[in-house]
Amino acid sequence: MMTALRPLLFLLMLLPGLSAWCQEVDNTTDPWESMNRRIFAFNDTLDKYALLPAARGYQFIMPDPAEEGVGNFISNIYEFNSMFNFLLQGRPGDALQSAGRFLVNTTMGLAGLLDVATPMGIAHEPADFGQTLYTWGVDRGPYVVLPIFGPRTVRSATGYFVDTYTSLPSFAVERQWAYLFWVVEALDLRVDLMQAENLLSGDRYIFVRNAYLQRREYFLTGEIQDSFSIEEEGDEYIEF
């Protein structure tokens, strides 16, 4: 467990410098646009020839109830992260709620394949380490496109990797189970994003950038900065 927590401990030591650096560099939303566009094109090609065909195959062989069960299982796994981050944010009530969802769905919901907590009135409210950094006053930093992992900000990218390496799969003794979980998670997310592809128009890079930043802002504050339309699926926040 200590091995998985090392990224968090390391980040805590660098936090003052990270905050100051983000504030200094964040002069515009996208100061690294030239580099970001090249990485975006690489990711687009990788998606077209690898991830998207794999996601379509996954969707084809998975019955809808099984696909929903996998999505529930993944969401339940990350209740642990939500609990952990709510504690770091000083929100013990929300942490207890996430812990309750995890306990109920893991036991009564067949290891999380069924979401029985929501009908019982235990609502799903996600939290991640990027949100924790926001709560601690760390600036957003510039928009950045990561190879394979896609659109982020410096703050949300930092949070993503901390969340990944402090998630339950990262504690697995046999690493292949963690890798299998992350592969299935990527396929499940890509299937979800197929529904949004028809919305893409104009400059794909600009569209995806604006959509990501708006959805992230909505996740953190519950507010939308301009008129860009955001569709929520229930109360679930979908990262992309």
Score class of each variant (00 low, 15 high):
Val25Thr: 13
Glu125Ser: 10
Glu217Val: 00
Ala123Trp: 03
Ile224Gln: 13
Gly202Lys: 05
Glu197Trp: 12
Asn105Asp: 08
Ile61Lys: 02
Arg91Ser: 11
Ala117Met: 04
Ile230Asp: 08
Ala186Val: 05
Asp139Trp: 07
Gly109Ser: 07
Asn72Tyr: 10
Arg204Glu: 15
Pro16Gly: 03
Thr29Ala: 14
Val104Cys: 03
Pro92Asp: 05
Ser229Thr: 11
Tyr205Arg: 06
Leu18Cys: 06
Glu197Tyr: 13
Thr107Gly: 03
His124Lys: 15
Phe86His: 14
Arg56Tyr: 14
Tyr134Trp: 14
Leu220Pro: 01
Asp115Phe: 08
Ala178Trp: 03
Gly17Glu: 02
Leu189Asn: 02
Thr221Pro: 04
Leu14His: 06
Asp64Gly: 02
Val208Arg: 07
Ala54His: 01
Ile148Ser: 01
Pro151Val: 04
Val145Asp: 09
Phe228Asp: 04
Pro142Ile: 14
Glu217Trp: 11
Phe240Asp: 04
Glu217Ile: 02
Leu51Cys: 01
Val154Lys: 11
Ala178Gly: 02
Ala172Pro: 00
Phe10Lys: 02
Leu146Asp: 01
Tyr143His: 13
Leu220Lys: 12
Pro142Asn: 13
Glu232Gly: 02
Ser170Ile: 01
Arg6Glu: 10
Phe40Ala: 14
Pro147Ala: 13
Gln225Tyr: 10
Gly202His: 10
Pro7Met: 08
Met13Pro: 00
Phe181Gln: 01
Thr166Asp: 09
Leu51Asp: 00
Gly137Trp: 11
Leu51Tyr: 07
Asp128His: 10
Gln97Thr: 13
Phe149Pro: 01
Pro151Ile: 03
Glu68Leu: 14
Asn105Ser: 01
Gly100Val: 00
Cys22Pro: 00
Gly71Glu: 05
Pro16Leu: 06
Phe171Asp: 10
Ser227Val: 05
Val184Ile: 15
Val184Lys: 02
Phe60Tyr: 12
Val162Gly: 04
Ser82Gln: 03
Arg175Phe: 09
Val173Phe: 11
Asp226Met: 04
Asp226Cys: 03
Asp188Tyr: 12
Ser19Ile: 00
Ser34Met: 05
Asp235Ile: 05
Leu213Asp: 12
Asn27Tyr: 02
Asn81Pro: 00
Ile230Leu: 15
Arg6Ile: 14
Ser167Lys: 06
Leu110Arg: 13
Phe129Arg: 08
Phe228His: 10
Leu12Asp: 11
Ser170Asp: 14
Asp235His: 08
Asp235Met: 04
Ser156Ala: 13
Leu12Phe: 01
Leu187Glu: 06
Val162Ala: 07
Pro16Thr: 06
Arg215Gln: 14
Pro151Ser: 04
Asp203Cys: 09
Ala178Phe: 07
Ser75Tyr: 09
Glu239Thr: 05
Leu9Val: 14
Phe80Asp: 00
Tyr49Gly: 05
Gly234Leu: 08
Val145Gly: 08
Ala127Gly: 02
Ala211His: 11
Val145Leu: 06
Arg38Cys: 06
Asp115Gln: 03
Leu103Phe: 14
Tyr58His: 09
Tyr212Ile: 10
Pro53Ser: 05
Glu174His: 13
Gly141Pro: 07
Val104Lys: 08
Ala99Pro: 00
Asp44Arg: 15
Tyr134Glu: 11
Tyr165Leu: 15
Phe161Ile: 09
Ser167Met: 09
Ile238Phe: 09
Gly121Arg: 13
Arg190Asn: 05
Gly71Trp: 02
Pro151His: 07
Ser82Arg: 03
Gly130Trp: 09
Ala20His: 06
Gln225Asp: 13
Tyr58Glu: 05
Pro126Arg: 10
Glu197Asp: 15
